[in-house]
């Protein structure tokens, strides 16, 4: 009797569960879990002399990761990410503030200005910058036509150019969370601050920035992390000293043909990402504004 009862229960609970959560779980397992496990396994594999992957356990890949050459690139990548993030805050904050405080139709127009470039492939947009900044590019032509310079100026292949490209690509990721945070900000708090004698800049420091720190924080995470991996930006715009971690990974999988090493590098990048998200959560960050 009891058995029959529990069997009935099993059916009534499991079928809906399978139908609803089942497909989702299947997709997650196929597209996230299995590839991830594959990368982890790969990172402990060795290669033979012809660079074929051998399923032989080794820690060599991880040992190579701490070589000074790589360390230098990690540092460089973190620096680029840091500068990019700061620039995105400096540019994105006023912009987001203006969109959030604008009323009427202009608001939608401003919002669209951020979104529209988003619809174009970022690779194409980065190539656009290259055309613009190149030695025979538009900017140099304009400068020379106006006789501001006689020789073309080399804008490309510098660390700064990479940062420019990164800022350009990632700025919307900063603006959206900032906009959301600023939009939620209660206008009467600003009035109250002013009413109590605070000048506009003091209100910014005492009220607006502290109350939108969540937005600054999620924006920073959403800019900083991709910045470590956007290899195509440094590939197209940057010179030799602007590689990011993403370049290292790409090279091992492509020209280097050393998949286990590339996998180990990927694991490092994932680890850095997880640590950053962890810190973010610890400091009271809202996971939803990261899209999690």
């Amino acid at each position: 009797m009891e058995k029959a009862h529990s069997k009935h229960n099993w059916k009534s609970n499991t079928l809906p569960a399978l139908v609803t959560v089942g497909p989702l779980t299947l997709i997650l397992v196929l597209l996230v879990a299995i590839p991830l496990i594959y990368v982890v396994v790969m990172s402990f594999c060795s290669i033979d002399q012809y660079y074929n992957v051998e399923f032989k356990f080794t820690l060599d890949n991880y040992k190579r990761l701490i070589s000074p050459d790589y360390m230098k690139i990690y540092g460089q990548s973190l620096l680029i990410a840091l500068v990019t993030t700061l620039l995105c805050i400096l540019i994105g904050y006023p912009f987001a503030y203006i969109i959030a405080r604008t009323k009427s139709k202009k608001k939608r127009l401003l919002y669209m200005l951020v979104i529209i470039p988003f619809w174009t492939n970022s690779l194409i947009r980065i190539y656009g910058w290259r055309t613009f900044l190149g030695n025979n590019g538009w900017l140099n032509s304009i400068l020379q036509t106006l006789h501001i310079t006689n020789e073309p100026i080399t804008f490309l292949y510098k660390q700064g150019t990479t940062v420019l490209g990164m800022v350009y690509c990632l700025l919307p990721f900063m603006i959206f969370p900032l906009y959301t945070a600023l939009e939620k900000l209660d206008g009467s708090l600003l009035e109250a601050s002013s009413d109590l004698g605070a000048k506009p800049l003091v209100t910014l420091r005492e009220i607006i920035i502290p109350l939108t720190s969540g937005g600054i924080f999620s924006g920073s995470i959403m800019v900083f992390i991709p910045c470590l991996g956007y290899f195509f930006v440094s590939d197209i715009l940057g010179g030799g000293n602007s590689d990011v971690i993403g370049n290292l990974i790409e090279r091992q999988f492509q020209s280097g043909n050393n998949w286990p090493l590339g996998a180990a590098l990927s694991i490092i990048l994932i680890a850095v990402t997880l640590i950053l998200v962890r810190i973010y959560k610890k400091m009271g960050g809202d996971m939803e504004s990261l899209g999690v």
Partner: peptide, 29 residues
Amino acid sequence: EPFERNVNTVFQSYALFPHKTIFDNIAYG
């Protein structure tokens, strides 16, 4: 400007600063 006027307001929604303690809210002015 409001910050130059010698009048103060009690707002309908109170408009207390949520990130400041009661002490800091009152001390703001």
